[in-house]
Design a protein around this nucleic acid. Structure first.
Length: 726
RNA sequence: GGGCGGUUAGCUCAGUUGGUAGAGCGCAACAUUGACGUUGUUGAUGUCACAAGUUCGAAUCUUGUACCGCCCACCA
């Protein structure tokens, strides 16, 4: 018997050694797997952001994916799990910018584009290395030889290829529209990057001028200097007589020309039933202005400061200008009412800055524009929705399909250009000819820079989710026609958190359907959010985060993995505590001791001998078979939380508490037939238990496997999943 | 405002096609030192949120109510 078994199990010294052994075996790479494997099984890892270190949520994701891939590998499939990381454009750049500012007092413009990018790349590399080592600590059996990064050369080729194709199809366009501007991050963001925060605000009701006939209500009086109309509902009897009339007023020193218009968008019941139209600083007002051909006057700039007026408000921040204008309204006796209201304020997800709607020339993806695919007219919206509707892609748990449809139905064009430097630069070049000096009248979109003089590339980069949307096929070598792409795509399951269903899952489906005409994955499995023992989100500010590495050091990653999986149903948030993890550390110890008992009492037993089994032992084997069947069905149906619990329960409360206990008198007795039968049964049960536990607790099971009398030449990770027949 | 979940033992949660409830932790008592004290045995605790309905039978299906959580949304 292995001398290590005489001491308590020590995960710290075991786990890294076992991982190295797996890596050296080459079995993470499907090309090296033993046997003839016809069926293929693929997972592409959701790439963690290179903004820092992994947290327990990542650990949960990696654990579930590793369970799936290890199970499928043991089923005899050719399994590929591609690891990777995400450049996370805005998140990474703003993090590095912040650090540089803190240490050196310099901003991005002090450094310049190239220098900042050099610094960010350095940071990203370090972060990547940390993440890669963490992924290994968790035990992930992924193929490092195929590792990808969303911003490496191959992925850049994929991004540019897609951009060019969509541009040619008219699905990517440049347009002057109201976008979500983040004054803090100095960039546009997409609708999905907005986080609404409920705050108290004041709804002011006032008249622009003593002689103006209608009072309006707003929470942002400072934007009113940009008003070009007042809109009322066409059926509103109170205001009908004013429609079509035009007025000139001076509003806090700013001359305004206001037209009274009728538009059905206006809610008669809200406020005074009249809406001051600020085309340049409100999404809906922009649309109304388009309908009525109103001028769009921008009065707020990229720094959220006023660009009009006299020194009372000019160059003041919007909030300061608001106070000035309210004072002015009071002084002029124009203010009729101040009412406290709760409102949802838009903030930028990454920086927390209050989003300022601004009109800007940006790049968009047209989700409602028709195009032809396989001879059929369709839209991006349709091809994103169909695979779920038709059941080609199954979502687990399925109630998320409803959320998915709801999002698609309300989807607007996706703003993809970002005014930051770290990311895929937009593959578009501009040139002005001598005839139209100063105006870019020539545009070129291509994978490489165009020939000829005077071309200047677009300064902007792409939304990080653009490159992530290509992930299942860009990681397999697309646009090249690689063997990998042919073999491993579509992938089998996308395992990720439900919070990125729109950001990522939907866009992957959209981009894969558009570019490849196929689904990116057959199943989507959503894990829940990992929360602390009190149910709070883990965060830096609360200081309640848990480092997976510390968990591994303190309890062993096997224990951490079990704690992350047992009792955590898909789509449901779960709580984790040190107590829970500790319980599974005890479980690891239990298995260790079971092994010690079994191996020390079966030194002469040969599993190949197939002795005639006693009735009791037949029963034991039957019960084991029942467990295998249950666990297999659970794994096939993505019920990892149940499979893990059943195995735990079987090993501890059946194998150890019942089988081993009742074996003691048999083993020390003198009925040889009974004893031989029981020894065989014990060894068989141990061996089989290790197999079914392996996907969940890979380290300790592989370690014990190497101590088994005959098995030490092979590796458990490539053993076959137990069959119920003996 | 719209949508989606949840409400089961002190705590955390299971309960896959309807057959009068389970696990882990915790708690209580007892045992025991040759697999394991990171142990074993035994035990207690639940009108399965509430109401109505379908059914021979409902934690499980239907409808409604209450509370909690989450997501979405251009009422200024």
């Amino acid at each position: 018997m292995d001398p290590k078994l005489l001491k308590p199990y020590d995960p710290a010294s075991t786990e890294s050694r076992v991982y190295k052994k797996w890596e050296e075996s080459g079995y993470f790479n499907p090309d090296n797997l033993p046997g003839d494997r016809k069926e293929v099984f693929t997972i592409v890892m959701p790439p963690p952001n290179v903004t820092g270190i992994l947290h327990m949520g990542h650990a949960m994701m990696l654990t579930v994916e590793d369970i799936i891939i290890r199970y499928q590998r043991m089923l005899g499939k050719k399994t590929l799990w591609i690891p990777g990381t995400d450049h996370a454009a805005i998140a990474t750049q703003s993090k590095v910018e912040k650090e540089i500012y803190k240490k050196e007092g310099k901003n991005r413009h002090d450094l310049g584009r190239e220098e900042l990018l050099t610094r960010i790349r350095q940071f990203a590399k370090e972060s990547h290395d940390t993440i890669a080592s963490q992924i290994k600590v968790i035990g992930s059996s992924c193929d490092w030889s195929r590792e990808a990064f969303t911003l490496d050369n191959k992925r850049n080729l994929a991004v540019n290829t897609v951009f060019k194709k969509m541009y040619a199809d008219g699905l990517i366009y440049r347009g002057h529209r109201i976008v979500n501007w983040d004054p803090k991050g100095q960039t546009t963001i997409s609708d999905d990057e907005i986080v609404y925060e409920e705050r108290k605000g004041i709804l002011y009701t006032f008249k622009y001028d003593k002689d103006f006939p209608i009072a309006i209500s707003t929470t942002r009086p400072e934007t009113k200097v940009g008003d070009t109309a007042v809109a009322v509902h066409p059926d509103d009897e109170r205001y009908k007589k004013y429609v079509g009339k035009e007025y000139d007023v001076e509003f806090c020193g700013v001359p305004l020309h206001l037209k009274i218009i009728a538009d059905k968008e206006v809610d008669k019941e809200f406020g005074t039933g009249a809406l001051g139209v600020t085309p340049a600083h409100s999404q809906i007002d922009w649309i109304i202005a388009e309908r009525h051909d109103l001028p769009k006057k921008q009065v707020i700039n990229e720094f959220a400061k006023m660009t009009v007026g006299d020194d009372r408000i000019l160059n003041k921040k919007t909030t300061e200008a608001r106070a000035v204008i309210v004072e002015w309204l009071k002084a002029e006796d124009l203010l009729q009412e101040e009412k406290e209201v709760t409102q949802n304020i838009s903030t930028a997800e990454r920086t927390g800055g209050i989003v300022e709607p601004l009109p800007k020339l940006q790049w968009f993806i047209a989700v409602n524009k028709e195009f032809t695919k396989n001879g059929k007219t369709t839209t991006l919206k349709k091809i994103t929705k169909e695979p779920i509707e038709k059941g080609e892609i199954k979502i687990i748990p399925d109630y998320f399909s409803k959320t998915y449809f709801h999002w698609i139905d309300n989807l607007n064009d996706w703003c993809i250009s970002r005014q930051i430097w770290y990311g895929h630069r937009i593959p578009v070049w501009y040139r002005s000819t001598s005839l139209t000096a100063g105006k870019d009248d020539e545009i070129y979109c291509g994978i490489e820079a165009p020939e000829g003089e005077g071309w200047k590339q677009d300064e902007d980069t792409l939304d990080t989710w653009f490159s992530s949307a290509l992930w299942t096929f860009s990681t397999l070598g697309w646009p090249e026609k690689t063997k990998d792409l042919e073999t491993y795509h579509p992938t089998d399951v996308l395992e990720t958190g439900y919070e990125i269903i729109f950001f990522w899952v939907a866009r992957m489906i959209m981009m894969t359907e558009y570019n490849l005409g196929t689904i990116p994955f057959k199943n989507v499995y959503f894990h829940g959010t990992v929360r602390d023992a009190k149910g709070r989100r883990m965060s830096k500010s609360l200081g309640n985060g848990m480092d997976p590495i510390e968990v591994a050091n303190k309890f062993g990653m096997d224990a951490g993995r079990m704690a992350l999986v047992v009792g955590t149903a898909p789509g449901t948030d779960s709580k984790i505590s040190e107590d829970k993890i500790k319980g599974y550390k005890h479980f690891a110890n239990k298995i260790w001791n079971i092994t010690r008992f079994v191996l020390s009492s079966t030194t002469d037993t040969d599993l190949d001998s197939n002795p005639t089994l006693e009735e009791n032992d037949e029963k034991i084997i039957n019960e084991l078979n029942k467990t295998i069947e249950d666990v297999t069905a659970d794994l096939d149906n993505y019920r990892f939380y149940m499979a893990s619990e059943k195995i735990y329960h079987y090993i501890w409360h059946t194998f150890a508490d019942i089988i081993i206990e009742e074996s003691k008198p048999i083993l020390s007795g003198d009925n040889l037939a009974q004893k031989t039968s029981r020894q065989w049964t014990l060894l068989y049960t141990l061996k089989t238990s290790l197999k079914i536990l392996h996907p969940f607790m890979p380290f300790i099971t592989e370690e014990i496997w190497s101590m088994m009398p005959k098995e030490n030449e092979t590796m458990l990770m490539v053993e076959s999943w137990p069959k119920t027949k003996i």
